[in-house]
Amino acid sequence: MSDTKADALPLRHIARALVFDPADRLLLIAYEAVRPIDPERPDARAFWFMPGGGLEPGETHAQACRRELDEEIGVPDAPIGPLVATCDGPFRLFRNPRDARERYFLVRLPSDEIDTGRLAETEDNPVLGTRWWSLAELEASGERIEPAGLAALVRRILAGDIPAVPVTLSWRDA
């Protein structure tokens, strides 16, 4: 059976990065959602997400990932590692909802120094900030972090178990 809401959304191929610093913290970006994200807290409108964005014509996912990391966090030659996860389906928290086909790459930076000076100008939704998250903070957080399953994937990667086959993650709205 077809999801007519998903069918009506534009298809968008996206490359994202699980960006780790030398302390094994994951970089996430906070965005303002276009609608309430928690029925228990109607005023909650922020969600955390990984850096990345849509592919441009002729780009591979890895090329798009590298370009996006330059644009969003000021790292022009990020070492793009293996594809570790996918997440496909309708995503409606951005101003321009989409039927997303997201691919997630592992990226380890030599330092935690980033430059987010251009981040807000590249995004659909207002950017509320960036933060480096430890695994313990990810697992204990009551914040909305997308996609579901991210903390378990981070735990696996930090244990040295890099998925040979990409892990399938899911949107919390699905």
Rank of each mutant, 00 (worst) to 15 (best):
L106M: 06
L128K: 08
D124V: 07
L135M: 02
T116Y: 00
S111D: 15
E146A: 11
D115Q: 02
V19C: 12
F94L: 15
T86R: 08
Y31F: 13
F91A: 10
R67W: 00
F20H: 11
Q63T: 11
P79N: 01
G129A: 02
A159P: 00
L69N: 00
H13D: 14
I73V: 08
I37W: 05
G117M: 03
E32G: 08
T86W: 03
W171N: 12
E137I: 05
E139D: 07
T130F: 06
I14C: 12
D43H: 10
P39F: 13
E59Q: 10
E113T: 13
P10M: 12
R95F: 08
A148D: 10
E40G: 11
A46D: 13
E40H: 12
R35Q: 15
D24A: 15
A174I: 08
Y104T: 04
I29D: 07
R131W: 03
A17Y: 06
L138E: 06
E56F: 06
R16N: 12
P42M: 06
I14P: 07
P76F: 00
E32R: 12
E139S: 04
L18V: 14
A62G: 01
P90V: 01
R25K: 15
E143V: 05
E32C: 08
E32P: 04
P51Q: 07
E146S: 13
G160Y: 02
V165G: 05
L135F: 03
I29V: 15
T168V: 14
E123I: 03
P97Y: 00
T122G: 05
K5V: 14
V154L: 02
D38F: 02
A78V: 01
R16E: 15
I73R: 03
A85D: 06
R118F: 11
V127N: 06
E72L: 04
H61A: 13
R95S: 14
D115K: 00
G52F: 01
A100I: 09
A23N: 13
D38T: 07
R131A: 13
G117Y: 04
R131N: 07
P110A: 14
D99T: 09
C65D: 00
G74D: 04
G149I: 02
G149E: 00
E137T: 05
K5E: 15
N125C: 09
A6V: 15
T60F: 02
L83M: 14
R172C: 07
L128G: 05
L128M: 15
P147M: 00
T4G: 03
G58H: 02
W48N: 14
G117L: 06
R172T: 14
L158C: 05
A151P: 03
V34D: 10
D115R: 03
A8H: 09
I80V: 12
M1P: 10
L26R: 10
V84L: 05
L18G: 11
I157W: 01
P110G: 13
G74P: 06
R35C: 11
S111Y: 04
L138Q: 07
E139C: 01
F47P: 04
G117S: 13
L55N: 03
D115Y: 00
D77Y: 05
P79I: 01
I37A: 03
S2M: 09
G117N: 09
L158E: 11
F91W: 11
